[in-house]
Amino acid sequence: MLDAFSRAVVSADAKNAPIGGGELAALRNYVAEGNKRLDAVNAITSNASCIVSDAVTGMICENTGLIQAGGNCYPNRRMAACLRDGEIVLRYISYALLAGDASVLDDRCLNGLKETYIALGVPLQSAARAVAIMKASSTAHINETNTTGTNPVETRFRKMETVQGDCSALVAEAATYFDRVIGGLS
């Protein structure tokens, strides 16, 4: 497993060169934006159950066949497995965002995930859709652009009370990790 720093080390080692100027600038940026990154990870982890259940619910709303007899989210046992997997995927994405590198996501989550799902008969398209919804709500939480949606009295709605700032780079980075999962499933 690598983080942003050890990724720089591994690629410098392949060139047999010390790490200087250009590569250090990127790492200095990681350091300078460090607090934003921690807030972003916190925004995901603090709202994890909401993000996951919302994504799975949304996936089912778009395809109600999933919870009818014979569907892949029927009975509760399989629905629970679905929620569990959503949480696992989101957890590895939060690790990747914390580390600033996708290797932990690749090695420990995506490696063999598609094959496992095919073997278990899990519909990849639905799984990818749930991840896409998690991407939308996670990036909204990081950016604090989340809304109550169609329900104006949504009781679970909350905003992180962090100082407002430019989080576009982090949002874009987080989005790449979700896209990586979607890419790995399709």
């Binding site: 983080d3 990870v41 957890r91 939060s94 914390l98 580390a99 420990r108």
Partner: peptide, 27 residues
């Protein structure tokens, strides 16, 4: 590659939990 972040993530993963406040403080 051992570093603070990878150590923290490995420990969190072994316990199957999201990065906690302690982990974020360590980073």
């Amino acid at each position: 590659m051992k570093s603070v972040v990878t150590t923290v993530v490995t420990a969190a993963d072994a316990a199957g939990r999201f990065p906690s406040q302690n982990d974020l403080e360590a980073v």
